[in-house]
Design a protein around this nucleic acid. Structure first.
Lengths: 334, 334
DNA sequence: TGTGGTTGTAAAAACGTTATGACAAACATT
DNA sequence: AATGTTTGTCATAACGTTTTTACAACCACA
């Protein structure tokens, strides 16, 4: 059956404490016994029980990752990079998919804490942005946590500056001559960037061009349909994310709007699919691998005892990848 | 700090054993003390340490999932469904991405075992199908494991009959009049189905129409290019999976082959992207959610002590979803 | 008033490690 | 030769639970 340290000790003719000291190299052990213990460990193929070890060290060498869903490529890619970075540091990753409801997110975090993960990387994204404000992480004052989205208080943030990058995306459209730019998506940071960009260029924000969507493919489709129903006039569309943009693309085709001739579309996230659809989608690219890796490394720093400070937040630069969905030449102003 | 059972016992004025017995309801405890303990637990917000509990029960209430990558939608969707099913049963999921090399797969499994997961769901897929045969899981004779891919000996299989469904896919092409059907992909079960289907309909297998690919987008692209270089003549293309098919689609467009007019394309997996590309991809749809859920439930059965037998393998039926990438009318035979 | 069976609880033994304290043995210092 | 100092090792105590054993207290029945 399972071989324990006790049997190794017996085989090597020493006490269990000595075996432990050989294995952990903490204390002085003579060459002779060290060799004998090593041999015994080898021949019995002994591996310390991590459960027992965790109980003493109060560390499980594992981290938790909470994401809304893996069916969204953005999160699945991030999950892979986080897992990989954690693995390279000798940590395993517990994964929870929490959907887009606050309650499930919280119960995921609670469960991970109960499971004694050493730290948590939280990709919290809620349907209702109002809930984001209600989110209170002070329930777990001592938990090491890194957040992947802006807006969680008292938590180390690793991500991109969504406000600035949204401005850049919308400015791209403005630069192409667009004045009536619609928006489909959440009402958080990216919408603020959208509004800000318009204001910066003296374009009045038209509330009828703003449609709420939850970031799903369907929401993009639905958004375009809703704009049509409302008889909204627009020549460009800024979407909260690529899935939304893809849905919008499909809806545009369905109602005979040509992209980019009739309407220019910009997405956000630059998921792999973005370059594969026709027309290829112009999108804001986030350095996901770097984000994932950095999130893990910073989390391990926190676990190692480093103090959190708001200034240590890390915001990567997001790059606008220009493809075919906006056309390229200046258009007539309306 | 951390509140232990000891403090609960002191608060309630009983022994720790009694507290434990109240919490687990194993043994008889008088109503009076039961209430007192309950109150103490409540007021101190005591939660049993799962690490300590795991050490006694030798169960961690967690399972491991090994998949090649999450950047493939097939695996990311499966991962989400597995996580969800596990969560609903009170289990957490450790996730490992293992790439497509045998060695990494094995080290992932070993790590999960070391971490004391109660069972493992293995989505092993290797670049080199020869390695699949070398794969020896007897190294871990007592590990509860469910496999998501055919070909692992002595392991409960939950998946779809890839051979039969591949035959069905190729027969769809044959039914449309195609006689020269190329194949891009691995050399395992799906290729066997391809060969078998051709033989069934008296079509000789042309080795020059078979190109190796690893299932990536690039491999599909590269496959079509290679067929062109070889001057291969074909009117239809059966791809090992959808990512391959998407790559093939892009390559076809690049070299001026119209789909479906010049070449019909069939994929496998029916990833979400399949219905979004132009032309929408005809593909073999696997009931992923059901597979994920069933894999978890069967694994829990194994953990509960049920015996493995080859006859308990579960193969779901895969359905061919016909979209636009094959056209619809019979074509002239070459 | 014994005897025998419940019932409730405490005390102690496990689970498999790591960390601590004590103690010989070897060696160096006066 | 007496006294420190280092070195190697062994017991033993943690860690926080669950499980087992033991044993009082109570009740019923003769």
């Amino acid at each position: 059956m399972k071989v324990t340290i006790k049997e190794v000790a017996r085989a090597a003719g020493v006490s269990i404490g000595t075996v432990s000291r050989v294995l952990n190299g903490k204390d002085r052990v003579s060459q002779a016994t060290r060799a004998r213990v090593r041999a015994a460990v080898e021949s019995l193929d002994f591996k310390p029980d991590l459960t027992a070890r965790a109980m003493i060290h109060k560390q499980t060498q594992s981290i938790g990752l909470v994401v809304p869903a893996l069916t969204n490529e953005y999160w699945s890619a991030l999950a892979e990079y986080v897992q990989e970075a954690a693995w390279n540091k000798g940590y395993t990753m517990l994964l929870c998919t929490a959907g887009y409801q606050l309650e499930k997110h919280l119960s995921c975090i609670q469960t991970l804490i109960d499971r004694k993960v050493d730290g948590i990387i939280a990709g919290i994204r809620l349907n209702d942005p109002l809930e984001q404000d209600q989110l209170n992480l002070d329930t777990w004052p001592n938990v090491k946590m890194v957040s992947l989205v802006q807006g969680l208080p008292n938590t180390l943030l690793v991500g991109v500056d969504q406000h600035t990058s949204s401005i850049r995306a919308v400015e791209h459209l403005i630069g192409l001559g667009h004045r009536s730019i619609a928006y489909i998506g959440h009402s958080a940071d990216r919408e603020m960037g959208y509004r800000h960009a318009l204001e910066l260029h003296g374009i009045q924000v038209a509330e009828e061009l703003i449609v709420r969507g939850d970031g799903s493919f369907q929401s993009g489709h639905h958004g375009v349909m809703q704009l049509k129903e409302q008889g909204a006039a627009y020549t460009a569309l800024f979407c909260w994310n690529d899935m939304t943009a893809l849905g919008a693309l499909q809806a545009c085709e369905a109602i005979g709007l040509r992209v980019p001739q009739d309407v220019a579309v910009v997405g956000y996230d630059d998921i792999p699919m973005a370059k594969l659809v026709k027309p290829a989608l112009t999108s804001v690219h986030q350095p996901l691998q770097e984000i994932g890796r950095t999130a893990v490394h910073r989390l391990l720093d926190l676990i190692a005892g480093e103090e959190y400070s708001a200034t240590s937040n890390i915001l990567f630069d997001a790059e606008l990848v220009i493809r075919d969905s906006c056309g390229s030449r200046l258009r007539n102003k309306i």
